[in-house]
């Protein structure tokens, strides 16, 4: 029993020592729960087993708005293959988000308190994070590299094939 306790403590210390940044590739995607524009609540951990595309955006960010149609296309094309697209809007008011989001069929979650944005180290918009089926952050695209959804299509398809 004493040996087992020692082993447990060593594992615990190792786990504590290997903690990594929130949105680092390979790290576990920080869990969160947010309310969507349609009133439903979504929790990231409930999407375990699916590839999740998190896209942080705001209505005042032109490149963010222009990539929404591409994300909608991804949602339609790969939803059956196990892709969940979650848009995370950081606008202050619902009505700012609802206009650009009209016609989108994937959930638009509202991060009004910016708690989730902080969890994912949001510095530049748009920010796209690809989370694999095991809940690990695999790819992060920020700012310029996240503007075109085609830029991460190959990575996305690779994750869906896994």
């Amino acid at each position: 029993m004493a040996d087992r306790l020692k082993l447990v403590l060593i594992v615990a210390l190792l786990c504590a020592g290997t903690a990594v940044g929130a949105a680092d590739s390979g790290a576990g995607a920080p869990n969160f729960a947010l309310k969507a524009l349609d009133g439903k609540n979504h929790r990231l951990s409930e999407y375990r087993g699916e590839v999740v595309l998190l896209n942080f955006w705001a209505s005042w960010c032109g490149p963010c708005r222009s990539q929404l149609s591409g994300l909608q296309e991804f949602h339609l094309r790969y939803h059956d293959a196990g892709l969940a697209v979650l848009g995370i809007n950081i606008d202050e008011h619902d009505h700012d988000a609802s206009d650009p989001a009209s016609g989108l069929e994937f959930p638009i979650l509202r991060d009004t308190s910016h708690e989730v944005s902080e969890l994912y180290d949001l510095n530049r918009l748009p920010l796209t994070v690809l989370v694999d089926r095991d809940g690990l952050v695999r790819h992060v695209y920020e700012g310029k590299e996240a503007r075109s959804s085609d830029a991460y299509l190959a990575d996305l398809r690779e994750l869906l094939r896994e």
Binding site: L34, K40, E46
Partner: peptide
């Protein structure tokens, strides 16, 4: 149910959003 907020001794200690599954 949508959410539950818990305060202990006037201090917020939990605020939980419930999803459909939950």
């Amino acid at each position: 149910l949508d959410s539950v907020q818990v305060k202990v001794d006037d201090k917020e200690v939990a605020n939980y959003l419930y999803t459909e599954h939950e």
